[in-house]
Simulated scan of single mutants.
Amino acid sequence: MKFNNILIDDSTSTAIVTINRPSKLNALNSETIQELHEAFKALEEKKSVQVIILTGSGEKAFVAGADISEFADYSEKKGGKLSAKGHAILFDFVENLSKPIIAAVNGFALGGGLELAMACHFRVASHNARMGLPEVSLGVIPGYGGTQRLPQLIGKGRALELIMTAGMVDVERALDYGLVNHVVSQEELIEFCKKMASKISNNSPVAISYAIKAVNAGFKNSNGYDEEIKAFGACFGTEDFKEGTSAFLEKRKASFPGK
């Protein structure tokens, strides 16, 4: 896979996707959003890949926001289409991917950058990370899921404060709020995420995909408990379940076939 704005290392079971626009602080333009969609779709279909780490190039930014120059003159209709397309091909797509995506947040994660990190299944931040949704300072609101995912993660009151003040939070507050799971040094960030990915990879990829689906259902207009029951039952028909239970009873380490 060759792209203009992202780099991919999928040589191991943990793939690393790096947004590579350092001169623009890795800002998301339409081309980058499309490339990320294509990359995640290909990695989801690649059997050898079990976990994906998403990060930004350089030391300053994960993603410093959307590329405002692309849409500054948009009409209402074009603005709505921009948001809808972004949801469909990237932000919702990432959230619902069957393989776990860990956001390795290095530096600024602002606007669309924070929205992308929040769409990932969980987040690890470096000490220099700063996060926020500054859209109202531009006369617009977060349009890539920020008004929905931020309250889910940190609560309505805190989310509204962060959105309405257009402010940033440092990693200590982000950790306290539950916006990130872990904070490490910038030098340790990728290796820490790799270790987390390795722990995930020890488990059934089929069960993990069902767990993602069930958890997501609880935050949508569907009944999460019903989805859990359905997914739980479906696990019993998988080869991973047979291998996992056999390994437990035989007191050995499971070798999941991913089926």
Score class of each variant (00 low, 15 high):
Ser201Leu: 01
Phe248Ser: 09
Arg123Ser: 13
Thr55Lys: 05
Ile6Met: 03
Ala125Tyr: 01
Pro100Leu: 00
Ala39Phe: 03
Lys213Arg: 14
Asp226Ala: 10
Ala27Met: 08
Phe256Ile: 03
Ser48Cys: 09
Gln50Arg: 14
Phe241Ser: 09
Gln34Trp: 15
Pro142Asn: 01
Phe108Gly: 14
Ser98Cys: 11
Val171Phe: 02
Leu28Gln: 03
Ser185Arg: 09
Met168Asp: 13
Gly56Glu: 03
Ile19Gly: 07
Phe236Asn: 12
Leu97Ser: 10
Asp176Ala: 14
Phe122Ala: 04
Ser204Trp: 01
Asn216Lys: 04
Lys253Asn: 12
Leu28Ile: 01
Met168Thr: 15
Ser201Tyr: 01
Lys194Gly: 06
Glu239Pro: 10
Pro151Glu: 00
Gly178Phe: 05
Val94Asn: 01
Asn128Arg: 09
Gly155Leu: 00
Gly112Lys: 05
Thr55His: 13
Asn5Gly: 13
His37Arg: 03
Thr238Cys: 08
Leu97Gly: 08
Phe108Cys: 14
Leu7Ile: 12
Lys195Arg: 14
Gly139Val: 01
Glu95Phe: 04
Gly145Glu: 02
Gly146Arg: 07
Ala197Ile: 02
Gln34Ile: 15
Ser98Glu: 09
Glu243His: 02
Tyr74Leu: 05
Lys60Trp: 07
Asp170Leu: 05
Val49Asn: 05
Ala217Gln: 12
Gly178Val: 05
Lys46Pro: 06
Glu188Ser: 06
Glu31Phe: 08
Ala231Phe: 08
Ala217Thr: 12
Gln34Leu: 15
Asn202Tyr: 13
Ile163Asp: 06
Ser83Val: 04
Gln152Trp: 08
Glu45Cys: 06
Phe3Asp: 05
Gly112Met: 00
Lys253Ile: 12
Gln186Ala: 15
Leu90Lys: 04
Ile190Trp: 04
Gly112Phe: 03
Ser198Glu: 15
Arg158Ala: 15
Gly155Ile: 05
Phe40Met: 14
Glu161Asn: 11
Phe236Cys: 11
Ile154Thr: 02
Ile19Asp: 00
Cys235Trp: 14
Leu90Pro: 10
Thr147Trp: 11
Ile16Gly: 05
Ala211Cys: 15
Ile102Gly: 00
Pro100Thr: 02
Val94Leu: 09
Ile89Cys: 06
Gly145Tyr: 00
Ser11Lys: 07
Asn203Gln: 15
Asn223Trp: 09
Val169Arg: 07
Leu36His: 07
Glu95Pro: 06
Ser13Trp: 10
Lys230His: 12
Thr55Asn: 09
Ser185Thr: 12
Glu250Met: 13
Thr18Ser: 02
Lys259Cys: 10
Tyr177Arg: 00
Ala66Pro: 09
Phe3Gln: 04
Lys220Glu: 15
Ala15Gly: 02
Tyr177Val: 06
Val215Lys: 14
Asn5Lys: 14
Met118Cys: 07
Val49Pro: 11
Ser98Met: 11
Lys60Ile: 13
Val206Pro: 10
Gly65Ala: 08
Lys99Ile: 04
Val215Phe: 14
Lys194Gln: 13
Val171Gln: 11
Phe122Tyr: 03
Ile89Tyr: 04
Ala247Arg: 02
Thr55Arg: 06
Pro22Tyr: 02
Asn96Pro: 08
Tyr210His: 12
Gly244Lys: 01
Gly146Met: 08
Thr12His: 07
Thr14Ala: 05
Glu135Leu: 15
Ala61Ile: 03
Asn4Tyr: 09
Met196Tyr: 13
Leu133Val: 01
Thr18Met: 02
Gly178Asp: 00
